[in-house]
Write a protein that binds this DNA or RNA. Structure first.
Length: 110
DNA sequence: TGAATGACTTCGG
DNA sequence: CCCGAAGCCATTC
């Protein structure tokens, strides 16, 4: 850890801006940060700081709205429960009406 | 130093 | 449209 956590910090900043009840994708964040090839690093960055309650890591899913990161949360269903508590509908790890709850930083943040 | 590992995404068949 | 393979890249072994 040193200066290179700049990218991680930026990922965290964007994650904090995801509105309640909305979600975004790893790739969308990566692309927004001018690193479209680093989607996996976004996930890694989340893993690095999912302990921080200020960072809603549960609002970040993969590009089709699948809760691929659920196994990184405590318990068996925490990620889904957190999202459902915000009104997000989920069935078999797939977010329903994904296009409606999707929040794209590239568009919303300019 | 090199190979393996992912909270991903894209492309080709 | 679905599935498998390949590309990516920081981190770990």
């Amino acid at each position: 850890m040193g200066k290179s956590d700049n990218f991680f910090s930026q990922v965290h900043e964007v994650a904090k801006l995801i509105p309640y009840g909305r979600v975004t994708s790893y790739g969308a964040i990566a692309t927004y940060l001018s690193a479209p090839r680093s989607a996996r690093m976004v996930g890694w960055a989340m893993n690095n700081t999912n302990q921080n309650p200020d960072i809603p890591a549960h609002r970040v899913v993969n590009r089709v709205g699948l809760l691929t990161g659920k196994h990184h949360f405590d318990g068996t269903n925490l990620m889904q429960q957190l999202l459902e508590s915000e009104g997000v509908e989920i069935k078999d790890l797939q977010i329903q009406n994904f296009e409606k709850v999707f929040w794209d930083p590239r568009i919303e943040l300019e």
